[in-house]
Computed example of a mutant assay.
Amino acid sequence: MKDIGIEKKSLSSIAFKKIIELIESDVLKVGEKLDAEQKLANKLNISRPILREALQKLEIEGYIMRKHGVGTFVISKTPMLSTGLERLDSMTDLVKVQNYSVGTIGTTEISKCTDDSIRELLGLDKTDNLMFFERIRTADKKPFALDYIYIPEKYVCEDFHSTYADASILNYFSTVQGTPIFSSQCNIFAENASASIADKLAILENEALQVLEQTFYTNMNEPVFYGKSLIVNNIMKFHLVRRR
Rank of each mutant, 00 (worst) to 15 (best):
E37S: 07
T175N: 12
A41E: 10
D125A: 06
L146Q: 13
E32T: 01
S47R: 14
V232Y: 00
D128F: 05
F160Y: 13
D35P: 08
T114P: 00
P49E: 06
K8S: 11
V70R: 15
E61Q: 14
M1P: 13
S183T: 13
T72E: 01
E207K: 09
S111K: 13
L51F: 02
N99S: 09
S47Q: 13
I20P: 01
L209E: 08
A15E: 01
K77D: 12
S76Q: 09
I151C: 05
E120A: 10
V27P: 00
K67Q: 10
E134K: 14
K77H: 12
L209I: 09
F216P: 01
L230F: 14
S117A: 10
A195N: 05
D89G: 00
I75E: 05
Q185L: 11
I188E: 07
L122K: 14
S76E: 06
R52K: 15
I110G: 03
G31I: 08
T179G: 04
N221I: 03
G5C: 13
K57W: 00
M65Q: 14
F132S: 01
N221H: 13
N234M: 01
A165P: 01
L209R: 12
E59P: 08
K112H: 03
L11E: 03
D26P: 00
L85D: 06
N42M: 11
S229T: 07
Y155G: 10
A36C: 07
E205L: 01
D125C: 09
